[in-house]
Write a protein that binds this DNA or RNA. Sequence first.
DNA 1: CGGATATGCTAACTTTTGCAAGCAGTAATT
DNA 2: AATTACTGCTTGCAAAAGTTAGCATATCCG
Lengths: 120, 120
Amino acid sequence: MSAKRSGPDLGLGEFIRRQRELGHLSVRQLADVCGISNAYLSQIERGLRNPSSFVLKALADGLELSAETLYAQAGILDPSNGEAGDVVEAVRRDPYLSARQREMLVEMYESFRKVNDAAE
Amino acid sequence: MSAKRSGPDLGLGEFIRRQRELGHLSVRQLADVCGISNAYLSQIERGLRNPSSFVLKALADGLELSAETLYAQAGILDPSNGEAGDVVEAVRRDPYLSARQREMLVEMYESFRKVNDAAE
DNA sequence: CGGATATGCTAACTTTTGCAAGCAGTAATT
DNA sequence: AATTACTGCTTGCAAAAGTTAGCATATCCG
């Protein structure tokens, strides 16, 4: 058995489900895009199954997420790479944007976050 | 321009074996450290088995490699992974946005960059 | 020559992944 | 009410992952 679901995989399934719902996709639609069965995706989302590396990769692609983010959520990758992405900071540091453009991007980003929070 | 690639198309199993031998470990020793059976490790190294995410993670730890390196070798993670502070990367890694929202932000960012380039 | 001991590999077995098919619920048409 | 078309969930099974026990060879020591 070795490593199993004892502990920190709490949330991978829910994270996937949340991402799926943010994209307004049904279980079947996402499963289809990822090339897996809807039954299996349903089980993954509820934590009943432990997807293999390749399925996880397919899910990352289907959700248009970086694979690092998903793997970090699964507790497999160190979050040092996956979590650091502060969009606002990256925008503010970008030397190729004008102040006005930075402001627009930040506002757009924050309004997205706000909308998602409200739709929770 | 193509940057230099180290060990282009080395299979995952062969890569693991090479790393293990570089560390002067036997199959049993590495398997023990990783918490898997020696038989299974042997099969992984010869490409007869396809290890799960957790086993891959354990192998990375046992070999004292970054998990990213091993996952890149497995063809699961994109090897281009180092550039920090990039807006696009930050957006792609943000787990609170939907795929559609990420796409919109990236397109907005890139159109800004394009406009700025043209006006240079 | 034994006999430990270490190497990697094979075989038989158990457990988990992943899928095809079907079930129950909801909402809109007819 | 019946049909059609969605939604997500459950079931039973084939295939793959992963383990325990054992085989064969090689080295080292008395």
